[in-house]
């Protein structure tokens, strides 16, 4: 089973040289730490920055330089600043190659819910609805089951949707799965020490298991 770092490390392998990548808040943010040195990527922060760098050294924080999670960050050489309309313009126009974000639920047809629990939690969708509506390559980083042990990979989402038919790949603490165009989660890899049976048990939506499922290399 993977911890959050493990999920981030596995997702980092999906990032290709030359990509522009938008990382959501939470586990996706950790992915930046595990991108190999020989893979040249530019991180987009939707509050208006291309070329996001690591956190600043202590004492060098700049209140005017933050990421979409409102954390102080740095700008790498070659970075660019732009306004919020242009930021979502480049997202809508599919200039960003890969979007990685968290989810509360994903359905077997690629619907995603991650912004609201009616009556309990209303934080808002931020940029997530814009991202999932336009991105062609969306990877979700999430826990396979919730704290009550219930599957978050479902036939249909029960929470208010963020977007429909959009998730392409999911990395959880148990597995790597593709969302098939015709519907269903196709099991690609098992987390170290996790059996196919455990993944079947933890997946409420339609799960497609074909042949031997390799253990993932993290």
């Amino acid at each position: 089973m993977l911890d959050k770092t493990g999920i981030a490390k596995r997702i980092a392998k999906e990032i290709k040289d030359g990509y522009y990548v938008n990382l959501g808040i939470g586990i996706p943010t950790l992915v930046a730490n595990y991108i190999p040195d020989d893979v040249d990527v530019i991180l987009q922060s939707e509050n208006g920055l291309l070329g996001m760098g690591p956190f600043p050294f202590e004492g060098e924080e700049d209140a005017d330089t933050i990421n979409a999670g409102k954390q102080t960050i740095t700008k790498l050489p070659g970075s660019a600043i732009f306004d919020s309309a242009m930021s979502f313009g480049m997202i809508r126009a599919k200039k960003v190659n890969l979007t990685i974000l968290g989810a509360m639920e994903v359905s077997e047809n690629g619907d995603i819910a991650n912004w609201k629990i009616p009556g309990k939690m209303v934080k808002g969708m931020g940029g997530a609805m814009d991202l999932v509506a336009s991105a062609e390559n969306i990877i979700v980083a999430m826990q396979h089951v919730n704290k009550a042990g219930e599957s978050k990979l479902l036939p249909n989402c029960t929470l208010p949707l963020t977007g429909i038919n959009c998730v392409k790949k999911i990395v959880t603490e148990l597995a790597v799965l593709d969302v098939l165009p015709e519907g269903g989660f196709k099991l690609l890899e098992r987390a170290p020490g996790v059996s196919v049976e455990e993944i079947i048990k933890a997946t409420a939506g339609k799960l497609v298991v074909e042949g031997e499922i390799p253990e993932m290399i993290v």
Binding site: M125, G126, M129
Partner: peptide, 22 residues
């Protein structure tokens, strides 16, 4: 904010960030 929203004291329209900007 969350308290005023959940209690109905405040009217709120949550919209996607890109939609807001555009």
């Amino acid at each position: 904010f969350e308290r005023q929203l959940l209690s109905g004291e405040l009217e709120v329209e949550l919209i996607p960030q890109g939609t807001l900007a555009t």
